[in-house]
Simulated scan of single mutants.
Amino acid sequence: MDWGRAKNVLILAFLLLNVVLGYQLWSNIREGLSTSAEADDLSPETLRIMEEKGIRLADNIYIPAETPELQDLTYRLKTKLGDNERHVLKQPVEGKIIFNEKQLIEGLGAVIPDIDQYVYDGTTSDDKKFVFYRMEQLRPMFDVKLELYYEDQKIIAYRQDVIELVPSDKAIENPVLSATIAMAPLIEKFLAPGAVIKEIKLGYHGQTFAKSDTQVSAPSWRVLLEDGNVYYIHAVSGEVVTEEELVS
């Protein structure tokens, strides 16, 4: 037997095996990290309507590809402040702490309840306030906010919705509609010509009932437009609602 030749064949076989295994590993990692879809993944009919109405996605945004199974959240409002009701801080705090979770908790944790359960949202923040949303199951509750008001780079006041989650035996997990499917009726029936979609995010949203002790927040896609308009799409039924919902 030609051992030299056999050795070369074995080395080549192992190299090929490593290449195959490496490619499979890379593919699996890539698939696991892929959280976005392309605009071309929208249906041909939706793309046609977008072109006719001049609707487009803003630069550098993506359409989420996630379709997890989620359930409604039931909660009780402990504190719900009006738009003009704010708690003024006795001692202003440096505004830069919002970008560091540890510093944020150390700076305001003794003042603002449950602050560690709220996450900063740069898309809805502006030059007067930092906006945070209460997180549950790693997703924002769009109706439960914490707003930190600032002047001269210092946080001077806050406004917060405080809730208590209520366990529900009737809650059932359902697979959510993909963003590409959920957005089709929004684009066709609701968006005005020339609309520019700024962000698409999966979270929780529900109408607030003033006379009820408990509220329900359903899995929803939030669609922000560059003109400031906001739409919510029920992520299971596909129903589209605007932010201008009346409190019942």
Rank of each mutant, 00 (worst) to 15 (best):
I200K: 00
I200Y: 00
I200R: 00
K201Q: 13
K201W: 00
K201V: 12
K201A: 10
K201D: 06
K201P: 00
L202P: 05
L202A: 05
G203I: 12
G203H: 05
G203S: 09
G203P: 06
G203K: 01
Y204T: 09
Y204M: 08
Y204A: 05
H205S: 09
H205N: 09
H205T: 02
G206S: 07
G206N: 08
G206W: 07
G206R: 06
T208W: 11
T208F: 14
T208S: 12
F209K: 13
F209Y: 15
F209I: 15
A210V: 13
A210D: 07
A210L: 08
A210C: 01
A210P: 00
K211R: 14
K211S: 15
K211F: 13
S212I: 00
S212N: 13
S212Q: 14
D213E: 14
D213N: 15
D213L: 13
D213C: 00
T214H: 13
Q215W: 05
Q215I: 06
Q215V: 10
Q215L: 10
V216A: 12
S217T: 12
S217D: 11
S217N: 06
S217H: 07
S217F: 11
S217Q: 11
A218H: 12
A218D: 00
A218E: 11
A218P: 00
A218V: 08
P219M: 04
P219V: 10
P219L: 05
P219W: 05
P219F: 06
S220W: 01
W221H: 04
W221F: 03
W221G: 04
W221T: 07
W221K: 01
R222D: 01
R222W: 01
V223P: 07
V223K: 05
V223W: 02
V223T: 08
V223D: 02
V223M: 06
L224I: 03
L224A: 09
L225H: 03
L225T: 06
E226G: 02
E226Y: 02
E226T: 15
D227Q: 12
D227V: 12
D227P: 13
D227L: 14
G228H: 15
N229E: 13
N229G: 03
N229T: 12
V230A: 04
V230Y: 01
Y231H: 12
Y231I: 08
Y231V: 06
Y231F: 15
Y231A: 04
Y231E: 03
Y232T: 04
Y232N: 02
Y232L: 03
I233D: 00
I233Q: 03
I233Y: 03
I233H: 03
I233A: 04
I233G: 02
H234G: 08
H234W: 04
H234M: 04
H234R: 13
H234K: 11
A235I: 10
A235N: 07
V236H: 03
V236M: 04
V236C: 02
V236D: 00
V236E: 08
S237F: 11
S237I: 09
S237P: 08
G238D: 06
G238Y: 10
G238L: 08
G238W: 12
G238C: 07
G238F: 10
E239V: 11
E239H: 09
E239K: 15
E239Y: 09
